[in-house]
Design a protein around this nucleic acid. Structure first.
Lengths: 186, 186
DNA sequence: GTCTATAATTTGATAGAC
DNA sequence: GTCTATCAAATTATAGAC
């Protein structure tokens, strides 16, 4: 975990919220500064460029996301329950925060992102897929690794898409309908 | 179909390409004008505000997308083949154009879109779901309507997510892995 | 750490000539 | 339909005082 001042954390909080609403171009130094209660120039002190800020937001988001899931090979938790945790993590994004998944929206505009931000976005998915692949492998020890990885990719894609559709149709039950009975089957 | 000058179509072409890369904030009048070979003020002649341009891009995108699919109740085409058409339509987005689905990227940032653009985005999904629900119902005439609609939502979500992951991981085979064997099962 | 001041650029938009 | 000219606002960013 990075050692950061509380102001820096506040900046990340606001930047994340704005990015999860309007994407990488959906947040600005000025607007962040206004909401945090400082001046735009002061934001540059904490994060020199917008690249740095965007990458920091993405990295913190990813760290928190995976921390909330816990280790994939926790033997005291059934793989079915870990899978449910995964689905719930995405569901909270809309149900509690009314926000898009940061890396879902960054991923959609990945071709226009500065390299460091694009890289953090890619890492989010790689780490999520790795985590989920382990869970799948635990649930189906006899299934080949590729099957588990394929299931992890498909499940993650469905989650991101479920967020988009749920928000576009303005109906949280859309997410539930899509993820209902999301089986652990490989 | 709307009657538009060829310049207006050119503008829409460029705007769509840019929007499918960087989202709603990813295109500007000036940059469009430069690429089309006119001045920014001339773009305003064809589309008074950015809302209008964004909404027009989304509407044309949706019309074309559905036109490429053809009617859902075409009895001369098996529902399985229509489903494959649906998947292929998304696949072409990355495989041929190397672009995101316009309404996938718009949907991700829907909370920050001007109302007219958000509405067109919503309509894209409603029309796609309606089309796909019919196809599903044809494939499973005895299954309840809700099952068909739920399958349509899930399939569409998976497509949008597959585009995001495929682009983020910079690997088209990710899309194929996710959509492989996408059954017509309800 | 935060500020003022300022620069350089981009953006959406309009008025009016041709 | 397209242009020039222009505007007001927003954006990223830096220099230097406190």
């Amino acid at each position: 975990m990075k050692n950061r001042s509380s102001k820096a954390e506040e900046i990340l909080d606001v930047a994340e919220r704005m990015a999860r609403t309007g994407g990488y171009n959906g947040f600005s130094f000025r607007e962040i500064a206004k909401r945090v209660g400082i001046k735009a120039a002061s934001v540059h002190y904490h994060f020199p460029g917008k690249d740095d800020l965007g990458a920091a937001v993405a990295r913190r988001y990813t760290d928190r996301f995976l921390a909330a899931l816990g280790p994939a090979d926790n033997d005291s938790v059934a793989p079915e329950d870990l899978l449910q945790r995964y689905v719930d993590a995405y569901r909270r994004s809309i149900a509690e925060d009314d926000l898009m998944c940061l890396c879902g929206i960054f991923g959609a505009e990945i071709a226009d992102l500065p390299a460091p931000v694009a890289e953090e976005t890619r890492l989010f998915f790689e780490r999520c897929i790795a985590w989920l692949t382990r869970v799948m492998s635990r649930a189906h020890p006899d299934a080949p690794q590729e099957k588990a990885a394929a299931a992890a990719l498909r499940l993650t894609a469905t989650m991101e898409g479920a967020l988009i559709l749920s928000r576009s149709l303005d109906d949280v039950t859309v997410f539930d309908g899509i993820t209902y009975g999301m089986s652990i089957a490989p």
